[in-house]
């Protein structure tokens, strides 16, 4: 079980702190989930608010175990940059996919699901399903 390859998760936010904190939150709520490779790509390379294609590419490469990478984003340029990188063809690992999900809830669902050894389709479905959880 421990040597089973897990789907990688990349969390892209306009803010480095948001991306890093959501990664920690998701891993924490997944009971440690140490086997799941999770990487944060937040803010610009200079540490400001924004989106960095370089940080996203590096994060995706770092969590790629060959069984797919789920990329979750916050909004605006984060979404557009990931889409543009996917269109490039060689900027993100094979099997990388933009997952349409709420950022925090989707990240938790994705990491918890990936920890079970689920495949990319199942991780994507779990993250997307987070949209259907109503709070009121």
């Amino acid at each position: 079980m421990s040597d089973e390859k897990r789907v990688g998760i990349v969390l892209v936010s306009h803010s480095a702190e948001v991306a890093t904190s959501v990664a920690e939150l998701a891993k924490g709520l997944a009971g440690g989930a140490t086997a799941v490779p999770v990487a944060a790509a937040g803010g610009t390379e200079g540490g400001g608010l924004g989106t960095s294609a370089e940080l996203i590419s590096a994060a995706a490469a770092s969590v790629d175990r060959g069984v797919g990478v789920a990329v979750l984003t916050d909004l605006g340029s984060a979404v557009l940059t990931v889409k543009a990188l996917l269109a490039e063809g060689d900027e993100l690992p094979d099997g990388a996919r933009l997952v349409d999900a709420p950022f925090v809830e989707g990240a938790v669902a994705a990491v918890v699901t990936a920890a079970t050894g689920a495949d990319l389709d199942a991780v994507e479905a779990a993250a997307a399903e987070a949209y259907s959880y109503r709070k009121v």
Binding site: G50, T51, S52, E54, S77, L80, T81, L85
Partner: peptide, 12 residues
């Protein structure tokens, strides 16, 4: 432009 702009204008 995609890799350096840092806002939505980059990918666009």
């Amino acid at each position: 432009l995609i890799s350096t702009v840092g806002g939505a204008a980059g990918p666009l």
